[in-house]
Design a binder for these strands. Structure first.
Lengths: 209, 209
DNA sequence: GACTAAAACGAACGTTCGTACTATTTTCTC
DNA sequence: GAGAAAATAGTACGAACGTTCGTTTTAGTC
């Protein structure tokens, strides 16, 4: 067969393996958000990508490593979605509101096709000790701390009352986010996001200085 | 071997099959709360109960039927735990508070060893169409409606402000419950339940008439 | 363009999955 | 306590699981 390298696939700088790995994980994240991290299987993932089980498997070495890499890939998507735009807002109250809105928008737009990857993973692995649970937990600890930090900044900027308990408020906001996910995806409640918006707004304004 | 029916196993009136079925489901509910409804397998369930796969299988006819029966069994435990005592409280505000406290107590006591069965099932099946999702959804619709009803009763009794939106408040309370489950089981946050209690109390008292 | 290393494949492993069928044991009823 | 009915066990099945291995193809380097 003639060698007709018509055009380089694209001016990608990363080596082939890295590119494939990324495309595997992109798909893995979507599947896991629909079927769970347990329901994510190597065979069906390979089939969807049109590659062999063994070829795919070689990238990770074990199912557990695939799950962990999938969590890592999902983190990146999550962080991008929730923080990227919000960080353009001035620190304090505006940024906090932006984060809340970004979260609810992320649900409405189904950034993960099966709903928030981490809400699902949290409830799937909350009682299954092991490296996968550890990673999910670590990610959620990071997220909660980031949320607390943005609340603390709003206090520091003098936007929220001084006696606001950051961890308490972060707990409440996160609960509303997960509640929105629940009502939106399981109950098909189109009002779920408005409800969460309203609750967030009411709560924040009550604590405003 | 001599027939030594020393004592009737117990003065049970239900036929054998029914008794076995119930003991299977009791165990199935616990396993599913830990491993998920997907992770609940017939083989391991049979082994734990010391019976054959086929013998167990015959009770249900399919894995899907086992899952549905497990959901049904979990509903009963749920309803008992959340409502039985609370219904002794006078209708209105006291009963609403009792339901909230029962929910949080149900988490603290790990009534299901892996955390709330329905929180887990909701996030596991929210995007997986089929009879199992339908049952989970139906159960959760019932639960939310029951919660709304108890809020409406509190309004009718004149305990809550007239402009309280029952569906909105039910959404917020349920979100806090799920949030407590999340923080308690995934993050091992011992304060999770107090936080939820505090948030519930603050919210309810703000709406009190 | 040749050489090397990385990447992907194909086939097979042992195990477990859910399910089907038949035989045996146990329970219930008269 | 005999007979019918229900419950359980045993065995087998095809498919899918995660994983291993040896081979072949591809990509990157001089």
């Amino acid at each position: 067969m003639a060698e007709m390298t018509v055009a380089a696939p694209s001016p990608t700088l990363a080596p082939k393996g890295e590119r494939t790995r990324q495309s595997i994980l992109d798909r893995a994240v979507d599947i896991a958000s629909l079927q769970g991290l347990q329901g994510l299987t190597i065979g069906s993932l390979a089939e969807e990508l049109g590659m062999s089980k063994s070829g795919l498997f070689a990238h990770f070495g074990s199912k557990e490593e695939l799950q962990i890499a999938t969590i890592e890939a999902a983190s990146q998507r999550y962080i991008t979605e929730i923080f990227t735009e919000a960080l353009h807002e001035p620190r304090g109250y505006p940024r906090l509101v932006a984060i809340c809105n970004a979260w609810l928008s992320y649900i409405r737009r189904s950034v993960f096709p099966g709903g928030c990857f981490f809400a699902a993973a949290s409830f799937e692995f909350d009682s299954r000790p092991g490296p996968v649970r550890d990673r999910v937990r670590h990610m959620m600890d990071d997220w909660m701390h980031a949320l607390e930090r943005s609340i603390r900044m709003a206090k520091d900027e003098g936007h929220l009352k001084d006696d606001v308990d950051s961890a308490q408020l972060a707990f409440e906001l996160n609960s509303l986010f997960f509640g929105a996910n629940f009502s939106f995806y399981l109950r098909d409640d189109q009002q779920a996001i408005e409800r969460a918006e309203r609750a967030v707004k009411t709560r924040l304004e009550a604590l405003r200085k």
